[in-house]
Design a protein around this nucleic acid. Structure first.
Length: 101
DNA sequence: GCTTTGACTCTCG
DNA sequence: TCGAGAGCCAAAG
């Protein structure tokens, strides 16, 4: 844990299965307001091992981990993780969001 | 070393 | 309720 992105990956990796998190939560936990930087780093995904599909927008929508929330495969993947997508948004998002303690 | 970009978020009309 | 604009920060060019 040293650079900004390392923190991001560390936090994202800590998201357990069946839970989701938001860019804001991650950035806030890190201590910065670089919400956009979080998404940007995730998109590059150098480690290629972070569950980026578990990171969504603050309002529960997929946001655009794949350009835009149009990749239904990701939705299915989330569904398999017990995360259901309703109307392009995470069902019970506020209850499923994972807070990094 | 400055400028541009981006998978965001908030506020206002 | 929805769309547009502004603000924020870090990484890449």
């Amino acid at each position: 844990m040293k650079t900004f992105q390392d923190k991001v990956f560390a936090l994202v990796s800590r998201i357990p299965r069946g839970r989701v998190s938001t860019y804001k939560a991650i950035a806030d936990k890190i201590g910065v307001k670089a919400y956009r930087a979080v998404g940007q780093v995730l998109k590059k995904n150098p480690y290629d091992s972070v569950p980026c599909h578990r990171v969504v927008c603050s309002d529960g929508s997929l946001g655009g981990y794949h350009g835009i929330a149009s990749s239904k495969k990701k939705m299915i993947l989330l569904k398999k993780e017990d995360i259901k997508i309703k109307n392009n948004k995470v069902e019970d998002f506020e209850k499923r969001i994972f807070i990094h303690y």
